[in-house]
């Protein structure tokens, strides 16, 4: 009972905070600034900020109206510079998905091997230590030069940025499986492969999933920046394109949607993590 009421109260506080934020935003962007008298021709060049004193920053109502417009037609395609937000987000999610999936396919088996072999663990450690802190975008020129395809380069950048948390967490998870569970498998004369799948994998799964959750967050952070560089399609490109169009409204909408999609991706991985976590 107390938890429900706590949840209810927390929800109320959230709504109040949102309302306050929107209210302040609205008031801050509504106020008319000073206007100067000017000839009609000159006024056309200067725009609404100078002629009517309208704030250059869009208010919540402008953003809301534009967002509604976008949500009604998420998948329109009017050529390379005018696509619906659904399409742009779709491109970004597809790139993240591909790079991320490749990283999963490499990081988890490799992490398993490293975690189970102290020799490999020690031998590969210097490489991992050097490669891990490299900003994924630093790979971009090298990727563009070698791959010669901007879209695949973006996928490569996602791959390279999401591989490290997964790899390190898999190594850690596999290496720190409770000794007694290993001993159970040993006393039952379970073979190496069966032990890996029936004891080590389930025991390390929560740690591995945590790494995957960190990775998906980083991948989603990086895709926006990568698409700004690569251009063409995707939500990152959309942000940069709308900045060039000086459409702050669209930039704000894109920021909001990037946040929502990032949250959804995180929640999906969080759910998977809960599914493989068993209390003792």
């Amino acid at each position: 009972m107390t938890t429900t009421s706590l949840r209810l109260r927390a929800g109320l506080v959230s709504i109040v905070l949102l309302a306050a934020f929107l209210g302040i935003w609205h008031l801050a962007t509504r106020s008319a600034g000073p206007t100067t008298a000017m000839s009609p021709e000159y006024a056309k060049l200067m725009g609404l900020t100078a002629t009517q004193g309208k704030s250059a920053m869009p208010g919540p109502l402008d953003v809301g109206a534009k967002l509604w417009e976008h949500l009604r037609r998420p998948f329109y395609d009017n050529g390379p510079n005018d696509k619906g937000l659904g399409i742009q987000l779709g491109y970004s999610i597809a790139r993240v998905g591909m790079g991320y999936l490749l990283a999963v396919l490499v990081a988890i088996p490799l992490g398993f091997l490293i975690g189970m072999s102290p020799l490999l663990s020690k031998a590969l450690d210097p490489f991992i230590q050097v490669l891990k802190p490299i900003s994924p975008l630093a790979w971009m020129p090298l990727a563009l030069y070698t791959i010669k395809d901007s879209s695949i380069s973006a996928i490569f950048v996602i791959f390279i940025c999401s591989i490290w948390p997964m790899l390190l967490n898999t190594v850690f998870g596999v290496a720190s499986v409770r000794k007694e569970w290993i001993n159970v498998a040993r006393t039952l004369e379970v073979g190496t492969l069966r032990r890996a799948f029936t004891v080590i994998l389930p025991a390390a799964a929560p740690t591995i999933l945590t790494g995957m959750r960190i990775s998906i967050g980083i991948a989603w952070l990086v895709i926006v920046a990568a698409e700004m560089l690569v251009g063409g399609t995707g939500i990152g490109y959309f942000v940069w394109n709308e900045w060039n169009n000086l459409s702050i409204t669209n930039v704000i909408i894109a920021i909001l949607l990037i946040g929502v999609v990032g949250m959804l991706l995180d929640q999906i991985l969080a759910r998977f993590t809960r599914m493989v976590t068993f209390p003792e």
Binding site: E180, W181, V184, T187, P202, A203, V276, F278, P279
Partner: peptide, 15 residues
């Protein structure tokens, strides 16, 4: 498999 061990901390697989 001829020698079974009962562990102090039971060592059951929680999953």
């Amino acid at each position: 498999l001829d020698r079974a061990v009962i562990f102090q901390s039971h060592a059951l697989l929680p999953w």
